[in-house]
């Protein structure tokens, strides 16, 4: 039982895919102009990750080694297309906001990375929890990033205006430079926290 928790929780803090493993930066920077988009992208990626982890784990015995990467890609791309079609039909506004980055979930190195590093060598259940943990960790990081950017760059949170009429938002935050800089500081912050933890446990 605790092993399950271990596989699940590592994706959230210790091995957060975005902030520690530095995977999935493209969508992270592009769509986090609003918290709503961050959550949408995070959950969509989580869905694809969990499904592909499960399928890869199921077929891990029969895939010849040489073709495993293309095989993984086919599996991942299929689930991405399914998510794309689903959002297009049932959540049109979100689909429009995420735009180009929905099909780009395919090349989110986080998903291919977990398929290769974990799901192809572990049981279905463990792969499920690994995928879930990584995906939720990714989503959490996206939410934090987009919170900074939306509040400072647009004066809103989840579309709700927070400040009065006189507030002039720092538009830079929702432009590309703001994305890079905010993520940079977040990564630095997480590094600092980890270092302090190491020092404390080292003593």
């Amino acid at each position: 039982m605790s092993k399950i928790w271990q596989e699940f929780s590592k994706g959230i803090f210790k091995e957060n895919p975005l902030l520690i493993l530095l995977l999935g930066m493209c969508p992270a920077l592009a769509v986090t102009t609003a918290v709503e988009n961050g959550i949408g992208m995070g959950l969509a990626s989580t869905f694809v990750l969990v499904c592909s982890n499960i399928v890869v784990s199921i077929i891990r015995g029969v895939i010849p080694n040489k073709v495993r990467i293309p095989a993984f890609i086919v599996v991942i791309a299929s689930f991405v297309t399914i998510v794309d079609l689903f959002l297009n039909g049932y959540m049109y506004e979100l689909w429009k906001s995420l735009g180009l980055f929905i099909p780009l979930i395919v090349v989110n190195c986080m998903i291919l990375g977990r398929a290769e590093a974990f799901a192809s060598r572990n049981s279905i259940m463990m792969s499920f929890f690994d995928g879930l943990g990584m995906g939720l960790g990714f989503t959490l990081a996206l939410v934090v990033l987009s919170t900074f950017r939306e509040i400072l760059g647009n004066g809103t949170f989840f579309g709700i205006k927070l400040f009065g009429e006189g507030f002039e938002p720092a538009v830079l935050m929702i432009l590309p430079p703001g994305a890079f800089i905010t993520l940079g500081f977040m990564v630095a912050g997480v590094n600092a926290i980890n270092k302090r933890r190491e020092e404390r446990s080292g003593k």
Partner: peptide, 17 residues
């Protein structure tokens, strides 16, 4: 120390952007 690696790279990228 905490800025080393990706963090400072990202901030630099931000300035370049």
């Amino acid at each position: 120390k905490s800025m080393e690696g990706a963090a400072i790279a990202l901030i630099t990228a931000g300035i370049l952007s």
